[in-house]
């Protein structure tokens, strides 16, 4: 039997079409259809958070609640509170402290002529996240609903992302030796609850926000206040919107 050029071309193209089909069939056999929770639709949400500096009283409720909710090991923080004491002049060197992440409040600190305030911090869930860009294995990623998350089964623990995060929001889990960070309580917000830190904040200094929900108060918040993100010059697309953020905050 001789093979004509026509036969060769048709058979080769059949092969090309059929192999992926076979692959898909195999995938189907293994039962690999990704199942999502029926109620939560990722496409309907884009999460962010608003923080009002003028309301934070440094009680540490958020830090303790986060540790409870997410089993954060002692000495590690997914959220923490910093106290800034800024001298009137020169103000280049603010005195910043965060004893045990602010978990148990702050001892009084007086400094004549200085202003002081609390700054709650957590992962900024950046839209153009530096930590995601440096991950060599695709273990950290931006989810379609606007969260920066970690696939712990994929993480090698190489620490590139810990160094890349300009906000210092990542740590290496001392037990598993893989990276861990704020998930914006993904297990809660996907069930219609708010985050543990927002739930326990007594003054509503922080509020979970959904940018895709047209009725969310965040739109009013962004429209009517002077709002800043941390390190805007780094163009990370940070989604923690601070109201009343002082220029001295880094």
């Amino acid at each position: 039997m001789s093979i004509t050029r026509r036969d060769l071309v048709t058979n080769a193209s059949k092969l090309l079409v059929l192999t992926p089909a076979a692959a898909a069939f195999l995938a189907c056999l293994k039962g690999e259809t990704a199942e999502m929770e029926p109620k939560y639709k990722m496409a309907d949400h884009y999460w962010a958070m608003t923080i009002d500096i003028g309301k934070c009283i440094g009680c540490g409720n958020c830090v303790r609640a986060c540790a409870t909710e997410n089993s954060v090991p002692d000495g590690y923080f997914r959220t923490w509170v910093e106290r800034y004491v800024v001298p009137a002049w020169p103000d280049e060197h603010p005195d910043v402290d965060s004893p045990d992440g602010g978990k148990h409040g702050f001892p009084p600190k007086e400094k004549a002529g200085a202003k002081s305030f609390f700054v709650p911090k957590l992962c900024n869930h950046c839209a153009h996240s530096p930590c995601v860009q440096v991950c060599p294995v695709g273990a950290t990623f931006e989810s379609p609903d606007g969260l920066v998350l970690v696939d712990k089964t994929y993480c090698l623990g190489c620490r590139y992302c810990v160094q890349a995060c300009p906000y210092g929001c990542r740590y290496i889990d001392p037990d598993k030796q893989v990276v861990d960070k704020c998930t914006l309580c993904y297990h809660r917000i996907s069930k219609g609850l708010t985050t543990a830190c927002c739930e326990t904040c007594p003054t509503s200094a922080r509020t979970l926000a959904d940018l895709k929900n047209p009725n969310d108060p965040i739109h009013e918040f962004l429209r009517t206040n002077s709002v800043q993100v941390l390190k805007p010059h780094m163009a990370t697309g940070a989604k923690l919107y601070y109201k009343g953020l002082d220029e001295s905050v880094r």
Binding site: K30, T68, F141, S143, P144, D151, K152
Partner: peptide, 24 residues
Amino acid sequence: AGFGKYGHFRAGALDDIRARKVSF
């Protein structure tokens, strides 16, 4: 399974994170 469904990551990781139990 599910790698690349929503981006350069395993789609199942989202379910893993969501599966955590709520404390509050």
